[in-house]
Design a protein around this nucleic acid. Structure first.
Lengths: 118, 118, 118, 118
DNA sequence: GTGGTCTAGACCACA
DNA sequence: GTGGTCTAGACCACA
């Protein structure tokens, strides 16, 4: 059995920023705090924050302009795709876990519905 | 922002054993491998495995008889409660995540249903 | 006027490795020296070499297996595309330079032909 | 492997001025801005600009008269030789690069011709 | 100020 | 052994 290692910090930061974009905390086109500012805010090394940013840029979620700063994408299609991807990941983790406990699809939906109706 | 630390290994082991009990891999009343055997099998320190066992015993999921061994509880009520607890944890994580993405209960159920119908 | 900065070392290393792949010095599927070995061979920091590798992997030119090593892609289509891209870059630099000196296409071709016939 | 260091700034400036002479932006015999003026325009140290000028003078591309200023050579033979030298440098870089990618002379000419015909 | 690159060195998971 | 992550800190180009 292999034990769960911690999700790398840069990935946790990426997820956090993505969530802020998907939920509108960070609006399309909005300027994001500088890597310096955020590295202090998150309490991580500058390089770690830069890695998060460069990966987010590679995924076209943000765009960076040297000497100016980084900005949330203005492409709402990318943002909606992001939301779908992130929800799909949650769904997959959930259904995989429930199935490994022995629940079938109908039971999973019933349990979820009961929980949400409370 | 705080980062997710790794879940302590003894808790990961506990969850793994609980899952085996809930899904019937380990039957009610069945003898469990010794702490020593399992610590080698999982590649963890003996103390770590002992901690997992003592916690499981405290939760009445297993019972240990000195000089004889450890056994899965025969109380099926405890086992079914265990299953409910574990599924509830998954449900909570899932709904919390989906809500933080901005989905409302109806949307969550719809997305899950579509996913499970595939 | 802006002055040419040095091409980042990790890009120079990427180009060097790409050239070895395109020319067959590194065969498809062949194992590449470890990042440690190469960082010593090239006299650069381990992190710089890792950056070169991770970018090459992102471009699917090499594939990396944790704990084992990195390998040249076996996809010959990727390799031939790589060759085309690299030659196109050289062609663009050349024609841009010649045109800025005042040569027209026919003159450029003539000069090149005379040079190559020597 | 040795890495490409940045071309010294005075050489970059020399090339830039040579290109302006070869392409006629600076006509034969035309007066060139003073070292002082140009060092500010290029944003470089006065000494750097002086070095560029003294090298250009050594190559007889410009001539300087104390107290009056610097002038582009009136010798069109020198200018045409300059053009040939600069194009030869581009040709050498290009053919060396293409050959190191594995192309033979005929292929190089074909690729260039196709590119220029577009 | 801003982001980009690089070094030096540590610790980790995996095989 | 192998690659992956992270920190601390330096220097750079660009605006």
């Amino acid at each position: 059995m292999e034990f769960n290692p911690t999700l790398p910090i840069y990935l946790q930061i990426m997820n956090h920023i993505k969530k802020e974009i998907v939920t509108g905390v960070l609006a399309p086109g909005e300027r994001i705090d500088s890597v310096r500012t955020l590295s202090e805010k998150y309490g991580v090394n500058l390089n770690t924050m830069q890695r998060a940013f460069s990966e987010l840029e590679r995924e076209q979620v943000i765009s960076t302009q040297r000497g100016i700063g980084s900005f949330v994408t203005q492409d709402t299609h990318i943002i909606s795709t992001l939301k779908t991807e992130m929800s799909q990941t949650l769904i997959n983790e959930f259904t995989r876990g429930m199935k490994s406990l022995g629940y079938n699809p109908n039971e999973i939906i019933d349990l979820l519905r009961k929980d949400l109706e409370e």
